[in-house]
Design a protein around this nucleic acid. Structure first.
Lengths: 119, 119, 119, 119
DNA sequence: TTTT
DNA sequence: TTTT
């Protein structure tokens, strides 16, 4: 089956990397994606999409990005569910990233140049 | 910002079209997307992605597809939230379709020919 | 930079695999992609897109597909140029596949042909 | 059939808009797309992809972008052929854009703010 | 709260 | 439970 996603949006927070028990880096980010058209009330709306990055993608995003940075995420939509504290099933839909691109946005100061080179 | 999704998967149910108060056709479907690789337990996993179709796309999908049909959905990821009966916020991530393709799958019997013509 | 392509179309010929001098399998295919809308003359048109597949993707496509098979190709657009026998530069734009999906199609036999033409 | 392309790259030239005999604006641009990985000689390579934009997309790109600007192009791959002056058939593969996004890049001076708002 |  |  085909399952392909391409997003370019802004980080809603500074990245906060974690590590699995086996030491694999993992990063959850939320991308803010402003819609192209206004809604029926004349307002612009925004979608907030949860993405999961692993390994080098997780590390580099932590290194080069922060709140407000513009990043491209390529991957697939993934669903999972878990039971919350009330014993209720919670369904999660997120993007499992396989590639990430840094497209600038917020000033990254001195670290900027390297990111630009990679871009 | 860029927000593009391409999916090909199978309908988990027969389509069940509804109409807004203004009479616009709307159809919610769930696509089953079998993953390409096995997980760490050696099993194939499946993602279940909720999609919303409007107007002609909703009508044609109802007409030509049923449980098990293979369909292509192009669109964007959309998020929304609402309060459930306990007053708790529920977050929903879904695909807002802008184009749909019928790729066959399950036999469509006599209705088949017309679908083929449109396809 | 971002460069992502998703295609689903039909093989215009039986696959004809080749091998590089180092023994890497490589397969060039052309996908026929029927457009969704008629042109200004009321005709359906078709795009013919050259794709290059390597290794397992090349081998499996050869094994499982033939002329008329429906296949999904994910990858990126690639350009290259060479000098032809008259010493003129020829520019080639093609899709470098990184993943391939077999979506059936063939056997199309007689009744099928019409559907194929429209699709 | 499915035919979807998402590109983010840089304009190789200042845009040079033209108009059809019926007055429809049309713009041909070439996007430079730096590849992610080095080739076997350790060099970065670049793909140069021809894109055709119409109407508002053509006009806005002319207004807000120039050589070096980073732009996102969504659309489909299209093929056509014509006879050159020697009576030989020339085959062209290009991207027919249906949406365009301005992602900055080269400084756009005063025009910048409007482009940003659209982003 | 799932398709083949 | 949000970015510019």
């Amino acid at each position: 089956m085909i399952n392909q996603v391409t997003l370019v949006g802004r980080l809603t927070k500074d990245p906060d990397i974690r590590y699995t028990m086996e030491g694999r880096p993992v990063l959850n980010i939320t991308l803010a994606l402003n819609r192209q058209y206004r809604n029926s009330l004349g307002e612009f709306e925004t979608d907030f999409v949860l993405c999961t990055l692993w390994n080098k993608a997780a590390e580099n995003t932590t290194k080069y990005c922060r709140k407000g940075s513009v990043i491209g995420v390529m991957g697939r939509i993934q669903t999972r569910n878990y039971e919350n504290q009330d014993g209720k099933k919670v369904y999660v839909t997120e993007v499992a990233a396989d590639t990430v691109k840094f497209l600038g946005g917020k000033p990254l100061e001195d670290r900027d140049l390297q990111a630009a080179v990679k871009m």
